[in-house]
């Protein structure tokens, strides 16, 4: 849990963060300033997430990545300059990440997550992971859980994206606006009207780990009923995570045709496995999943960034526990899985 440190904001901080302090208040800003964030994977989504978190004014951000910058990253990865292709993605992003907000301490880690000890992850207050396999995500999630640290992960494939959050046992305050009839004054000349009064309430939310959410049992009636009104994004995510696990890569734009066929086959298998209605997962959702489209990275990175701000500032209800962006309908929604 991030402690609200009592050191007042400097004049420079107050000036730079003025517009957001007016939204989320000074206490939130102070909590943010005490937060240490780890971002795993400096793809376009990682860059978008890092940008939003760095701008918000956290204490520190560590950029972890062991991959090198490729041409395809330039489609959405604006922190790494085009002339750094072939260099480590995190290191290539460092200069611009620092320039976003010199008040935030930014470091890099170039070791692969598998070779990093458990203790590495728990030195942070919150971990945001992208581009990892399911097994890696679950490992880091469980490490964080054990030490009561927050964990988020997400991905963007083409225009599609998702986010998962495990904030463990999360306490936060929420501002509730109430409408009350009020008298304007002792005179009757001005009508009495409804005034809005906002009160702050304390709340608590309990989260489940990623493995629960990813192994949701679709034979259960409560999930079956979700199919009727539902959106197939959860399954699209499952298919794409499976593709990554199986082929050790993401769908490749250079193999657009062949990979689309694989994805559609995997879709058919999943439909059979979970006895989903045929046609529930449309082809359209699986054809625009190549590379990382900048607009989609901005959208999902915006959501993840906002969830980090909510989690660290302990203000406003964070999403529990999955967010999906369905680009075909341009809808973004939150659903709870695995509870």
């Amino acid at each position: 849990m991030v402690e609200n440190n009592e050191i007042e904001l400097s004049e420079a901080e107050a000036e730079q963060y003025d517009r957001q302090i007016r939204l989320w208040g000074l206490d939130s800003q102070k909590r943010l300033r005490a937060s240490k964030v780890l971002i795993i994977g400096l793809s376009g989504l990682g860059a978008e997430t890092a940008k939003n978190i760095i701008l918000s004014g956290v204490k520190s951000v560590c950029l972890q990545d062991n991959e090198v910058l490729k041409e395809i990253d330039l489609y959405s990865q604006f922190l790494a300059p085009p002339d750094k292709i072939g260099e480590n993605r995190a290191e290539a992003s460092l200069v611009r990440a620092k320039a976003l907000n010199p008040m935030v301490d930014i470091t890099t880690e170039t070791k692969a997550v598998d070779s990093l000890p458990d203790s590495f992850f728990t030195t942070f207050d919150i971990v945001c992971a992208t581009g990892l396999k399911q097994e890696q995500l679950e490992r880091i999630n469980n490490i964080c859980r054990d030490k009561n640290k927050k964990f988020l992960c997400g991905d963007v494939w083409g225009m599609f994206g998702y986010m998962f959050a495990d904030l463990v046992d999360h306490q936060y305050s929420e501002e509730i606006v109430q409408h009350r009839a009020v008298k304007r004054g002792p005179d009757d000349t001005e009508k009495s009207g409804a005034a809005t009064v906002s009160i702050t309430v304390k709340r608590r939310a309990i989260y489940v780990p990623l493995q629960n959410a990813l192994s949701a049992d679709w034979s259960k009636p409560e999930l079956r009923s979700r199919l009727r009104r539902g959106d197939p994004s959860y399954f699209v995510m499952k298919i794409l995570l499976r593709f990554r696990d199986e082929y050790n890569r993401n769908p490749d734009p250079a193999k657009r045709k062949a990979d689309t066929e694989i994805l559609l086959r995997m879709r058919d298998e999943l439909v059979k496995e979970l006895s989903l209605p045929v046609g529930f997962i449309s082809d359209a959702l699986l054809t625009d999943v190549f590379g990382i489209v900048s607009g989609a990275a901005a959208v999902v990175g915006g959501v993840i960034g906002q969830e980090v701000v909510k989690a660290m500032s302990q203000r406003e209800p964070p999403h529990n526990n999955m967010f999906f962006f369905n680009p075909v309908k341009c809808v973004g929604f939150v659903e709870l899985y695995g509870q």
Partner: peptide
């Protein structure tokens, strides 16, 4: 200052989301 300057609070994330959606709509 908020009232006299008619300041509407603004944050990076909402702008990023709206701009992302706008460019997807342009596509």
């Amino acid at each position: 200052k908020s009232m006299a300057g008619n300041i509407i609070p603004a944050i990076a994330t909402a702008n990023a989301i709206v701009a992302g959606l706008a460019v997807l709509r342009a596509q």
